[in-house]
């Protein structure tokens, strides 16, 4: 099963991340940590949490970049988690079958009991989306909140990944990319959603929406003087007689 599913999965579940409105608040990253530290991969261990070198397992990390361009440049906050690739190299390199892509929905998962902790999958992933838990010696990763999205013990509305439900800016969307009518499919078409590092040929499921073209305004625009006949008072007169 380290081989990718022979047939395309029925559903292709994943995320759309809107770089236009992500303000970089880290809500998705922390809420993800909070959900998942008690979830499928529990715990997301923190080594030395109160020490000189605090580190931990996180499935989602928010990078910040500055982009220089001809519209004055901007700062872009850039959340990144597993992209649940169609051609997931992290799956095919796995020697034990612990790393697999689900045939049902395309989610890439790690079965911890089979993981020998060789870390090869983390080498194979170009996106840095795998997280080794040194405390337990196994690889962990984003599960697309598989223990939420199908969870019958949760309200229907809560059956979305934690990062999506908590995002205050609505910069994250979840859905089935195989369904052309899904919100994620449509928004990707509408906004020109793209793949990260396409040259890696991983065919990531998750898509990123580029920053919208800024409304820069009309260069040189300026208000004309109010009709000056009668001076300021004349102007006011006309203003009031409107």
């Amino acid at each position: 099963m380290t081989s990718l599913p022979a047939q395309k999965s029925k559903k292709r579940l994943g995320l759309v991340i809107d770089l236009d409105i992500c303000v970089g608040c880290h809500a998705c990253a922390v809420n993800c940590k909070e959900w998942n530290t008690g979830g499928y991969h529990a715990p997301l261990t923190d080594t030395n949490p109160y020490g000189a070198d605090p580190q931990g397992v996180w499935f989602n990390r928010i990078h910040s970049f500055e982009v220089a361009n001809d519209t004055g440049g901007r700062t872009v906050h850039f959340p990144k988690s597993c992209l649940h690739c169609d051609n997931a190299p992290c799956v095919t390199v796995c020697p034990t079958g612990a790393s697999y892509k689900r045939a049902e929905d395309g989610i890439v998962l790690v079965e911890e009991a089979k993981c020998i902790g060789c870390k090869l999958c983390s080498w194979a992933c170009p996106y840095g989306a795998r997280e080794f838990d040194e405390d337990v010696g196994v690889m962990k990763k984003c599960t697309l909140c598989i223990d939420r999205i199908y969870n019958e013990k949760l309200e229907e509305v809560d059956r979305v990944p934690a990062c999506v439900s908590t995002c205050p800016a609505n910069a994250r969307h979840y859905g089935d990319f195989n369904d052309p009518n899904s919100k994620v499919s449509q928004i990707v078409v509408e906004r020109g959603g793209y793949d990260l590092m396409p040259e890696m040929d991983c065919a990531p499921t998750n898509k990123y929406l580029p920053p919208r073209k800024p409304q820069s305004g009309v260069k040189g625009a300026s208000l004309p003087d109010a009709d000056n006949s009668g001076g300021f008072l004349g102007w006011l007169d006309r203003l009031l007689s409107d």
Binding site: T2, S3, V93, C94, P95, T96, C118
Partner: peptide, 9 residues
């Protein structure tokens, strides 16, 4: 377990 996935790995 590492010998199991010789088809791909």
């Amino acid at each position: 377990r590492a010998v199991s996935q010789w088809r791909s790995s």
